[in-house]
């Protein structure tokens, strides 16, 4: 029994999530009513979408099983299915006429290591917190904190540099959006900060 490496494990996870999510969507969707006096009800499309999603997940899982079985000797890289060499020179004219190998996934990023995950986590966390704190702390403070965090922890800038750039961009962007574009950016709802005009 061979242990799964990280990319394949993630593929399995997403495929499983698709099946689970699709089934949930289909069941909940069906609850909205599949039929109505004239034609279909509100639940029809969610049910169709959910079923298709679950079906796609199952197909994917089957592919993963198949890929695992064929490539037992070789190390599984997770993209055995995709890594076909473009062997079109050797094909007949008929094949190349009919062939329609569409690849829409150009050089997807390499799989992240532990630090890679940490960087993705820090960025996402910073955006999440910033969005949640926006009504409380106001735009200027939130943007400064978000940029500062990202510049310091992810871009590995020196602390003073990160702080300087963060404050500068927060103020500059507020100037552009409020003064030139005339849109309103949220201000702090804490009285102390609001009093400072933030």
């Amino acid at each position: 029994m061979q242990t799964l490496n990280a990319p394949v494990a993630l593929e399995w996870t997403v495929a499983a999530a698709a099946v689970a999510g699709g089934l949930t969507m289909a069941v909940v969707g069906a609850g909205y009513g599949l039929t109505n006096t004239s034609g279909v009800g509100a639940g029809f499309f969610p049910t169709v979408a959910g079923t298709l999603m679950a079906l796609a997940g199952v197909l994917w899982a089957l592919q993963l099983v198949a890929a695992r079985r064929t490539s037992v000797p070789a190390p599984v890289t997770g993209d055995t299915v995709e890594s076909l060499p473009p062997h079109h020179e050797s094909e007949s004219a008929l094949v190349s006429l009919l062939d329609d190998d569409n690849s829409d996934e150009p050089d997807s990023p390499d799989f992240p290591d532990r630090q890679g995950w940490a960087r993705v986590g820090i960025i996402s966390g910073a955006i999440l917190l910033a969005a949640l704190l926006l009504p409380l702390l106001g735009y200027t403070v939130v943007m400064t904190l978000m940029l500062g965090t990202i510049l310091f922890f992810v871009s590995k800038r020196k602390l003073w540099m990160a702080a300087l750039v963060a404050v500068g961009s927060a103020l500059a962007s507020r100037l552009v959006f409020e003064v030139w574009l005339g849109t309103a950016l949220p201000t702090a709802s804490i009285d102390f900060l609001a009093g400072l005009g933030l």
């Binding site: 969610p46 979408a49 079906l55 197909l59 299915v81 995709e82 569409n102 829409d104």
Partner: peptide
């Protein structure tokens, strides 16, 4: 836009529909 793997494209489209 399916790429080389129809199952994955179907998943993507169904997620969009959902």
């Amino acid at each position: 836009f399916a790429g080389s793997n129809p199952a994955k494209a179907l998943l993507s489209a169904a997620a969009g529909l959902g």
